[in-house]
Simulated assay, not measured.
Amino acid sequence: MQLTFLGTSAGKPTRERNVSAIGLEFEQDNKWYLFDCGEGTQHQLIRCSLSIGKLDTIFISHMHGDHYYGLPGLLSSKKLDTAFRPLTIYGPKGIKKFLECVMDVSFENLNYELKIIEFIAEDSFLFDKFSLKVLALEHSIESFAFYIKENDTDDKINEEKLREIGLEPSPLYGELQRGKSVIFQGKELKPEEYTLAPIQGRSLIIAGDNRKPDVLGDYLEDLDLLVHECTYTQDDYDNLAVKVMHTTAKDLGTVVQENRVKNLIATHINPRYNMKSEKGVELIYNEIKQSYKNRLFIANDFDVYRLGRDGVIEVL
């Protein structure tokens, strides 16, 4: 399972960061999934290995522009690239009206099937390699997180054990995989004796803007990976003239530690934390680390993370 961060800034693009967008890929798959699509996402795709032609589904977390203004340009470029693979967009109420308006006033003819599905909290969807549940967050407008549970693998053949008895890959492998006994060299081979133990699918949450990370409740408990906004340090948030409904590093660190989240990637970083400022992203990292003891990363644009089946994050 691999995540590519295409945009990690909060609210507006900066010289270092574009606005929100994350690509998700699964092993041995010929497609990928996009979570949020801030303005300029198609420019970011030019600079990484993800292909518009293999994009299968887009999920929009909420209707703030830095999370979906990149859709019109991306949809148009998909057509210009003659990438006519069907595309599905999942989003909250309003996403359908927005896209239909854009297509109407621009006289855009996409030449490919575009399906738009508006969801509500607690909706669940099934995909080839995972299931997805929509979770409500707390923000100034409706905002959502996506709980993703990879399918368990429970029918993988123990090739090494079969080769030890002289059975090389053949149609008999398929019979065993389908739960049927087979005869090899006069001996009955039972599927339970030549099938590996089930492998539990990985779990992650990709969250939109959110004031309280603990609103995710039991879904956080022993989660393999949480991707969550971390817009401010606590001190900077406390000194804002106008309070906004975003998460602080202090709150995020406390909640993920209490729920034993195994890996955390913080994103949606306020522009004040940058390389040319006295306030760098290390302030956010250090504040989270005051509470959180597991693996922590502050995402940058074009970072690629691989979540192994052992639950360990590798930075590529």
Rank of each mutant, 00 (worst) to 15 (best):
D29P: 02
T195F: 00
A136Y: 03
D66G: 01
D301Q: 00
F302Y: 15
T8G: 05
S51T: 08
S49C: 01
N109D: 15
L176R: 02
S51W: 00
S76P: 01
Y273K: 06
T233Q: 07
Y147E: 10
R309C: 08
M63E: 07
S131N: 12
E193F: 03
I199H: 11
M103H: 06
T195H: 03
L167M: 13
L223A: 06
P171S: 12
C101V: 11
G174E: 15
D123A: 14
A145G: 14
D236S: 08
I206S: 04
K54G: 03
R309W: 14
I288T: 00
M103K: 13
I288L: 05
G11H: 07
R17E: 09
F59V: 09
L167D: 08
I313E: 07
N111K: 15
G174R: 13
K262R: 15
G217M: 00
L264R: 06
D155Q: 12
K149H: 14
D218E: 14
E138F: 04
F125W: 09
I288V: 04
S106T: 15
Y33I: 07
D128H: 10
D29G: 04
G217E: 00
Y292F: 15
R211Y: 11
T195V: 02
M245W: 10
D81A: 14
P86W: 07
